[in-house]
Design a binder for these strands. Structure first.
Length: 513
RNA sequence: GUCCCCAUCGUCUAGUCCGGUCCAGGACACCGGCCUUUCACGCCGGCGACGCCGGUUCAAAUCCGGCUGGGGACGCCA
């Protein structure tokens, strides 16, 4: 006879906990009966503290950056604090270089932190202290099972279709510490643990699914699942916003909080970012590291804007300034399904920010790209002028730097196909006429040039388009460029006349050929 | 295999909580047009989705169940 209601495992549906709103714009503030209502109002007095805990085993990648951004935004929105913590307890894979790379990327994105960076390897004693507490209270025990044996048992379980969990061999041995021994957390084997996820809603786990996880490795270092909990407790973290891939770790962590009698933070799990093929983002999807995007000529505000829209939205708004992101960011508007990172969208956003930014502000950002191309030095004002003509035509700083070549080099290389088509003998007469008019000119600007063009065109009974292409080819070496007057304006009289004479020569050569 | 999560245009998403206002809105990409000295920018228009099957209901993208598909987790990694 079963008098107990059936246990509900997994996503708890509205019918089971009807007043747990998963999302919904106003529900949290409007619903008086919301179970967390007064916890919530207590929180309003309490400072929000979020954290970003990368492990220094590589560059900061897109997914990590978005997690950092969400935590940062939430803290900013609530007037709270943002903590950076380096999770370097994997002594094998953690490197100094990665720490630097992560810090650089955070700085580039201007994701400023109020505390840290903390390093877990500097806090090992704290973990041991808490581990001792757990041992003393009977919540942890020493285990001497050799790793190879455990590995073998896991495999067997897997092939037999069972969950590969620790079988509890040392659970009741009452062992003390010793070489090659690990400390395991004694996980309850009945009941359920409920994760009240602020993004996904409540999720229940059957405790029988959870095994006794290692909390202190045989080298005396805490494992991830233990160190995070201790850190989040001792750093007073109020909200843990992290990737979806941590959902299954959370019930174990909750049990540790409970065993320690600590207050739980709020947990929010954000769906992951995938590549175009829906597989998790990896190298073969192209650039995955934040700094690669800087090298590709992207602006940090564009990357941030792109990332914030992956899994979060505010109605139909696409463009967000930093302050708008902060102002509008709420957990309720985080989506529940995984998203695919799109380079096309990033390019569009980047083009938008390049257009919107004052040319003067682009110059310093562009300089490294110019230098990389070995262009001769030019003054800021000159480059700014060139930038202005290219802003609407460049999606990245790389494209801009490439397109800027003809402004920068002394001699332009003329595209052979373009020369063949436009630097033709028939054009030499009108070209000569234009050249002689230009030579007389003292003030060289669009305002003085345009009337001259008009009169020359009228005299020769030609359309502007007819002469524009040969001129363009002479000045830039290509049939594609910014507007002809803009170019002349930036290049200046001397260079324009020099290149026009060169062009004229080519036209006459064409006549002989 | 077991457990967990997810499911609206090709992509990012609005709408889902509180069913009707949605023969589903916006953005990127794509296609067409306008503007025009080239290329862009900009503007206008077009293409294009509620995974499937049941149930509840006068009414379902929205609630319920199943299926299918995708993803995650199962380490002395984090």
């Amino acid at each position: 006879m079963n008098l107990n209601p059936p246990r509900v495992i997994g996503r708890i549906l509205r019918t089971n906990i009807s007043n747990f709103p998963r999302r919904g714009r106003n529900s949290i503030l409007s619903n008086e009966n919301f179970p967390f209502q007064h916890r919530r109002s207590k929180q309003l007095m309490e400072t929000v503290i979020t954290r970003f805990p990368p492990s220094p085993t590589g560059d900061l990648h897109i997914g990590g950056a978005r997690t950092a951004l969400f935590n940062w935004l939430f803290a900013q929105n609530r007037g709270g604090k943002f903590v950076l913590r380096i999770e370097d307890t994997d002594l094998e894979r953690s490197t100094e270089k990665s720490v630097k790379a992560i810090l650089d990327a955070m700085e580039w994105l201007e994701l400023t932190f109020d505390e840290g960076p903390y390093f877990q390897t500097k806090r090992l004693d704290i973990y041991r202290e808490y581990a001792n507490k757990l041992h003393a209270s009977g919540h942890a025990y020493w285990c001497e099972c050799p790793p190879e044996e455990l590995e073998q048992k896991r495999k067997t379980a897997m092939t037999e279709g069972r969950k590969p969990k620790y079988d509890g061999t040392c659970r009741h041995k009452g062992l003390g510490p010793g070489p090659n021994r690990v400390l395991r957390f004694r996980s309850p084997d009945t009941g359920t643990t409920v994760l009240k996820d602020i993004v996904k809603g409540p999720i229940a786990f059957d405790n029988a699914e959870l095994d006794d996880l290692v909390i202190i490795k045989s080298d005396g270092v805490a494992t991830y699942n233990f160190a995070v909990v201790i850190d989040d407790i001792t750093m007073n973290i109020t909200h843990v916003i992290r990737g979806d891939d941590h959902v299954n770790n959370t019930p174990r962590q909750i049990q540790i909080y409970r065993a320690l009698g600590a207050k739980l933070p709020e947990f929010g799990h954000v769906p992951m970012i995938h590549g175009e093929d829906r597989a998790p983002l990896s190298k073969r999807h192209g650039a995955t590291s934040v700094m690669e995007y800087r090298n590709l000529g992207f602006l940090p505000e564009a990357l941030l804007n792109c990332l914030v829209r992956l899994g979060w939205s505010h109605g139909d708004q696409e463009i967000f300034s930093r302050s708008e992101m902060i102002e509008h960011f709420t957990i309720e508007n985080i989506g529940t399904s995984p998203s695919v990172f799109s380079m096309e969208k990033l390019l569009w956003l980047n083009a938008h920010y390049i257009k919107a930014k004052p040319a003067e502000d682009i110059v310093p950002l562009l300089r490294p790209f110019l230098a990389a191309r070995g262009y001769p030095e030019k003054p800021d004002a000159y480059i700014a002028g060139a930038v202005r003509t290219l802003q609407a035509r460049s999606r990245t700083l790389v494209e801009m730097a490439d397109a800027m070549r003809f402004y920068m080099v002394d001699e332009v290389a003329i595209d052979p196909t373009a020369a063949q088509k436009f630097l033709v003998p028939e054009m030499s007469a009108p070209f000569e006429r234009l050249l002689s008019e230009f030579e007389k000119l003292n003030v060289f600007s669009e305002a003085t040039l345009e009337p001259i063009f008009r009169t020359v065109m009228a005299d020769l009974n030609m359309k502007l388009g007819k002469i524009a292409q040969p001129l363009r080819v002479s000045l830039t070496g290509s049939t594609v460029s910014p507007g002809i007057f803009e170019i002349i304006d930036v290049l200046g009289k001397e260079t324009v006349l020099k290149r026009m004479r060169k062009g004229l020569e080519r036209m006459k050569q064409g006549a002989q050929a």
